[in-house]
Write a protein that binds this DNA or RNA. Sequence first.
DNA 1: CCCCAGTCTGTGATTTCCCTGAGAAACGCA
DNA 2: TGCGTTTCTCAGGGAAATCACAGACTGGGG
Lengths: 246, 246
Amino acid sequence: MTTTSPRGRTELLRPDGSPVRVLVVDDELSITELLSMALRYEGWQIRSAGDGQGAVQTAREFRPDAVVLDMMLPDMDGLTVLGRLRRELPDVPVLFLTAKDAVEDRIAGLTAGGDDYVTKPFSLEEVVARLRGLIRRSGAADRRSDSVLVVGDLTLDEDSHEVARAGESIHLTATEFELLRFLMRNPRRVLSKAQILDRVWSYDFGGQANVVELYISYLRRKIDAGREPMIHTRRGAGYLIKPAVS
Amino acid sequence: MTTTSPRGRTELLRPDGSPVRVLVVDDELSITELLSMALRYEGWQIRSAGDGQGAVQTAREFRPDAVVLDMMLPDMDGLTVLGRLRRELPDVPVLFLTAKDAVEDRIAGLTAGGDDYVTKPFSLEEVVARLRGLIRRSGAADRRSDSVLVVGDLTLDEDSHEVARAGESIHLTATEFELLRFLMRNPRRVLSKAQILDRVWSYDFGGQANVVELYISYLRRKIDAGREPMIHTRRGAGYLIKPAVS
DNA sequence: CCCCAGTCTGTGATTTCCCTGAGAAACGCA
DNA sequence: TGCGTTTCTCAGGGAAATCACAGACTGGGG
């Protein structure tokens, strides 16, 4: 089931109408804090654990609809934690967090069962999007919630990563895609450059704030080129997207 | 829930009808005093603290609905304070105060959890507006309170920053927008130039008082142009806004 | 009716913010 | 390893916003 929150955003709910539950497992406090804050903002109920032991325990009584699991925990090997979690919750989807240079093929084997993974450092948009996908496909939330965002004649498919304006397909790079997704998930709302940086760029990004301007400029060339513009600047405030006719 | 106060203003209330509670944390006494006065004027209940230690203690027993937190405190790093506050009050929204040039070396995720920030020197209208937004979205206040101000056929949306008169969209600059918001939040009431300067311009503004006249003039061109005027001068007293027909 | 404090607004200087081209560095894939 | 793609920095140009200044205007008291 989907419903419209007070923020005007569409959020996932379980079939019985209660909020989705997510368990976050990471040994770095800053990561669990960051993820908890962001996922709570999605309207979900969050618990966190700092090691494998705690993860299994919390999973038993919290019974989450999804788990975010760092593969590098101090007390147990990631695979062991996964096994014990599966004993408690056989069907729960898991989003793995792994270091960039970690053994990719080991993870690839794990995700065959419908799970997914993101590499550190990640962007919050990426984590949220993948979690939404996992929860949607697991059936914990209503399936009618679909994966296509629509603003005016612009469409973005979160599953296939296809973007089109007025039926015409548009190729975007990964960063452009995430930026556009964030804009389209908040239509008609002014988003500041700080908000965009916090959601779309990875949490350790230390660069110039004008990357946002740069990528807005790239998006305009591809989305608005020669058409009625949909991406608007609010000088001193930020950017927003809205249907061209309005 | 919203209700109409004796002053004729619409104010936020908690679902049980009690006033919203806000904790203000800053080590400069002049700032906490300034903010406390302005926020009390909104009908909110205010406590203040001068360091991280005091902030955590006060939060524990006061249980505020929102926190205004200076990132530069004498005894603790801003993030440490935040962490301890979160342990006491996991879902409380935080409005960060930061120096203008400190935004560059910002901490990732400041706004990602739905929190927000303003840079010093700020204007009181800006702080109040952002706090209202945070409280509204956090669900601490009744959800029916929405983000659109209406006076006659003039509307102002605080989320999308859109202004329209008689359905016709009007573009305003940031300062014009804040001035109009202040007027519209106090309809039919005379506001002196001093009051306007104190609320809409930042607290360290040292310029000529006639900027107010100038910006009233800008607003009239955009809002009243060729229409029945809504912005009126009370010679020797100040300005007020009211519906055109009356 | 005149005067003057108070108000309005045109002009332009300054500052701030935004856009975008060019190129360097990192990445990913064959 | 090599090549095309993507990401990002840097810097210049330009547009918009802000504000000071000064002269024009106005309304109300004398």
